[in-house]
Design a protein around this nucleic acid. Structure first.
Length: 256
DNA sequence: GCGACAG
DNA sequence: ATCTTGTCGC
């Protein structure tokens, strides 16, 4: 079992979920696009868009994925970082996983490619966080099921989507140039995310509800977890550490 | 039919 | 996401 398909083993063994229910396999490893699309509709029907998390989360995790290594075409590396409100710059723990994705990258279906690995990476953390910041959209998705929402429902944890570009929708109105400026991202007449200028002079972030976090709280928490950079610290560290891990792997395998 | 299109 | 040096602006 040590050499089982990465995604499969990851999904079953490492699910750091509260006891009670196990997500349908199609929510994690659907056999095809049609099944994946159906799963997204099921997941979207279970999303909670109201707050159901501590007002000030003490343990916040950040997750991100990167290519495993240049030269290793279809490999993915997932990094999970656990931070505490007390020491936000110093990770309490990290979880790293690598494997071959069962899904290709298809806009709108990112979760099926990365979540199997993210689940295993989060499972390597010593404890479940109060909140998870995800690199990508939450409900600001064609079917209301971006990777942040997908992950939140599967993990049964509060999540926030922090994307660096738009998937669907359009910025409405004007976005100020100052840090903290916001504007609605609207799609089909509905606000689906908040465009946030996290820092002066940088491209904005697209913050959306993942699961159990309201749109307003999502923006507040992202702002609270910023540390002088465009991305909030949990996500920024996961992104940076994933990149460092990739370089280390390339060097270790002599792929240079 | 023609674009758009998270990471 | 990834390939990539120098360069412009806060």
């Amino acid at each position: 079992m040590r050499n089982a398909a990465p995604g499969q083993l990851a999904a079953d063994r490492a699910l750091p979920r509260s006891p009670g229910m196990t997500p349908p396999v199609d929510w994690i490893r659907p056999a095809n696009l049609e099944a994946a699309r159906a799963a997204q509709h099921e997941i979207a029907a279970r999303v909670e868009t109201e707050d159901r998390l501590p007002a000030s989360p003490a343990l916040v995790a950040g997750v991100d994925c990167a290519g495993a290594a240049r030269g290793a075409p279809d490999r993915v590396r997932a990094m999970a970082v656990l931070l505490s409100a007390q020491a936000r710059s110093r990770p309490l723990a990290t979880g790293l996983v690598e494997g071959a994705p069962a899904f290709p990258y298809i806009p709108g279906f990112l979760g099926f490619r990365e979540i199997p690995f993210v689940l295993e990476a989060v499972g390597k953390l010593p404890q479940r966080p109060d909140l998870v910041l995800v690199d990508g959209h939450g409900v600001s998705h064609p079917r209301g099921c971006g990777i942040a929402t997908h992950l939140g429902v599967v993990l049964d944890l509060p999540t926030i989507g922090v994307a660096k570009s738009v998937l669907v929708g359009r910025l409405e109105g004007e976005l100020g140039l100052e840090a903290g400026s916001t504007a609605p991202l609207v799609w089909k007449g509905r606000q689906i995310a908040t465009v946030l200028r996290s820092k002066r002079g940088v491209q904005p972030l697209f913050v959306s509800t993942g699961h159990r976090v309201s749109a307003e709280t999502a923006v507040r928490l992202v702002m609270e977890w910023l540390a002088g950079y465009r991305l909030p610290e949990p996500t920024r560290l996961a992104d940076r550490l994933a990149g460092e891990a990739r370089r280390a792997a390339e060097a270790g395998e002599g792929l240079l």
